[in-house]
Structures are given as structure tokens and as C-alpha cells.
Amino acid sequence: MGVKRVSFVDSLRGFSLLGILLANLVVFQYGMHGALKNLSSQSAGDFVRVFIGGSFMPIFTLLFGFSFIKLIESVREKGLKSR
């Protein structure tokens, strides 16, 4: 019995995780407080926050919710409790 996966959702999830990694690279290098001070300009920091962090986190959040609903449906199809 094979597991049916939605390949588009899996690939979109991987893409969003890559974006989250890119958004956090500055934090990994400089630490939480140093990340804001060590960017070359304020506009570079704004770009990272808006276009990288602000775009990929909502995509990942929606995909997490979708996967959670699919998991609950799968458990219910097997006749088990989904609490």
C-alpha cells in the first residue's frame, strides 16, 4: 500500500523552506541583534524582510495547514480517531 503524495505541494514546500533558509542566513552569521546592524544598507534589510521572509513564511504556513488537514483525512479514512 503506497502513500499518495501531492508532488506539487511537496515541491512548493521545499521551495518555501529554501526561502526561509535564505531569510535566516544573515541571522545565522551575525546573531539576532547583529543581523540588523550588519546589512549593507537599510533597503537591503527591508528587501530581505519583505520579499524573502514576508513571502516564504506565509506560503510555508499555508502548506503546513494543508498537510495537516490531509493527515487528519487520512487517519479518518482508516477509521481511527483524529484527535
Score class of each variant (00 low, 15 high):
Glu73Arg: 13
Ser40Tyr: 13
Lys81Ile: 03
Ala35Lys: 13
Val50Phe: 05
Phe47Leu: 04
Phe68Ile: 11
Ala44Lys: 02
Ser82Cys: 12
Ala23His: 08
Gln29Pro: 08
Leu63Asn: 05
Gly79Ser: 04
Ser41Lys: 00
Ser41Cys: 02
Gly65Glu: 03
Gly79Asn: 06
Lys4Ile: 14
Leu71Thr: 09
Gly31Arg: 11
Met1Tyr: 15
Ser11Pro: 05
Lys4Asp: 14
Leu12Thr: 14
Ser11Ala: 13
Ile59Ala: 04
Gly54Trp: 02
Ala35Gly: 07
Val6Ser: 04
Asp10His: 03
Phe47Glu: 00
Ser11Trp: 13
Phe68Asp: 09
Gly53Ala: 14
Met32Thr: 15
Ile69Phe: 11
Ala23Arg: 05
Gly14Lys: 13
Val75Ser: 06
Phe60Thr: 04
Val50Arg: 04
Arg5His: 11
Arg76Ser: 11
Val6Gln: 06
Lys78Asn: 07
Arg76Asn: 12
Phe64Ile: 04
Arg49Asn: 05
Leu62Cys: 04
Lys81His: 10
Lys81Val: 06
Phe15Ala: 08
Arg83Ala: 14
His33Thr: 15
Gln42Ala: 10
Asp10Val: 04
Phe28Val: 11
Leu22Gly: 08
Gly53Pro: 00
Ser67Tyr: 02
Leu18His: 08
Ile59Asp: 00
Leu25Ser: 15
Ser82Leu: 11
Pro58Phe: 12
Leu12Phe: 03
Asp46Lys: 06
Asn24Met: 08
Ile72Val: 05
Leu80Met: 13
Ser74Pro: 02
Arg49Ile: 05
Val48Gln: 01
Gly34Leu: 08
Phe66Thr: 10
Leu21Val: 07
Gly2Phe: 08
Thr61Met: 10
Leu39Asp: 04
Met57Ala: 13
Leu12Val: 14
Phe66Arg: 11
Leu21Tyr: 03
Met57Pro: 12
Leu22Thr: 06
Gln42Ser: 13
Met57Val: 07
Lys37Gln: 14
Leu18Pro: 05
Met1Gly: 13
Gly79Thr: 12
Leu17Gly: 00
Ser11Leu: 15
Ser41Asp: 04
Gly54Gln: 02
Gln42Gly: 11
